[in-house]
């Protein structure tokens, strides 16, 4: 197994005051190797975006990493000074945001925005930076790159803006590319093109890709591995085929059942997940999914479930001691906290 370029261990993030902290990320661990792609799936408020902002140390006002370790290329990011952290951003780890229109400076021409870090941080000449930007725009499939550089972001179409944002994110040859809902704001046909582009670039440039999304269809095509987040925790993680083929956590399974598929007609009724997503301001005791789960037992409301292994090498893991979907034989008795019978 190749050693991972980015590994996060038991990360927790809190917002708010010290007296009344709001935990938005709790005990999250994952790792990703060069050239590999990891999908992080979750609904709003699941903590998926906050996890990645924490990795870049770009949490918003009042956000704080309370525990955990973030190792990038052997360096512990939490112990770096602000100056050293600045050197990691952009050329170590870079970010593609969801809404390209708000993620680009509206008052600066595209070319200048793209070139700025190349000149300021990498010491390129203005001319060299310009050439590199044109190259990058070509690479992400923007025709007539030289003239596009003179445009303001609002003068470009949505798909084109997202391409510019991608070009900016890869401009300093990052080792890890974090894409936070990179296609949510786009039309389906453009969405497909952008996803293909990101995936091709990852393979071509050998970057590690972390793709954050709420759309299971999006990760299905791109990710090598998937982590499903709910209520600030990873509830299930494994290879993509494992997650989609034999999901073990009730939330993963319910999520897959709750979305309309393109080949699902009116005659088959959807079974949506009842209730509301967990509110981080009102955290639940025990398992964060227990109020919406049909397999809840009393123990679920008390003890916080630990990650259990679903396969022999520990790649597929899930956080549900009830384990209503597990083949009994696969699980050693010691792995289960609970002792009562299964449904």
């Amino acid at each position: 197994m190749p050693s991972s370029i980015l590994s996060v261990e038991s990360l927790s993030v809190c917002y708010g005051s010290r007296k009344n902290p709001i935990k938005v990320v709790e005990d999250v661990s994952f790792d990703v190797s060069s050239g590999e792609s990891l999908g992080i799936v979750g609904e709003s408020g699941s903590g998926k975006s906050q996890t990645m902002l924490a990795v870049l140390r770009l949490l918003g006002q009042g956000g704080e990493i309370t525990s955990g370790e973030i190792l990038f290329d052997g360096k512990d990011l939490r112990s770096l000074s602000n100056r050293e952290m600045k050197l990691i951003r952009g050329n170590g780890i870079s970010l593609i945001s969801q809404d390209a229109l708000s993620a680009l400076n509206p008052a600066m021409k595209v070319g200048r925005q793209m070139a700025e870090p190349l000149i300021v941080c990498d010491g390129m000449s203005a001319e060299a930076a310009r050439r590199k930007c044109i190259e990058l725009l070509d690479l992400v499939g923007i025709h007539g790159a030289a003239s596009r550089m003179e445009c303001y972001p609002h003068e470009l179409s949505g798909g084109m803006r997202q391409r510019v944002l991608i070009a900016m994110a890869i401009s300093r040859d990052p080792k890890v590319l974090i894409a936070d809902e990179p296609t949510t704001a786009l039309d389906v046909t453009i969405q497909a093109q952008i996803l293909n582009l990101i995936d091709d670039l990852r393979k071509e440039l050998g970057m590690a890709l972390v793709l954050i999304t709420h759309d299971l269809g999006v990760v299905a095509g791109i990710a090598d591995r998937v982590s499903v987040m709910y209520g600030g925790r990873i509830v299930e993680t494994g290879e993509t085929e494992q997650i989609f083929g034999c999901p073990r956590h009730p939330y993963t399974r319910a999520l897959l059942k709750s979305i309309p598929k393109i080949d699902q007609s009116r005659s088959e009724r959807l079974s949506p997940i009842p209730g509301l997503p967990v509110d981080p301001r009102a955290p639940l005791q025990g398992c964060s999914f227990h109020t919406r789960c049909e397999y809840t037992k009393t123990s679920c409301t008390r003890t916080r479930p630990a990650l259990l292994s679903a396969d022999a090498n520990g790649v597929h893991r899930f956080r549900c001691p009830v384990d209503p979907f597990g083949p009994r034989s696969n699980i050693a008795p010691g792995d289960i906290i609970r002792s009562e019978g299964r449904r």
Binding site: R89, N91, S102, L104, M108, V120, R172
Partner: peptide, 27 residues
Amino acid sequence: INNDFIRTARSRGLSEWRIVLFHVLPN
């Protein structure tokens, strides 16, 4: 300063004073 593009600028490794001077103030 709470806009996404400020976060973009930070995520690309620009220094804080540069962000204030060239990204925040013009807007």
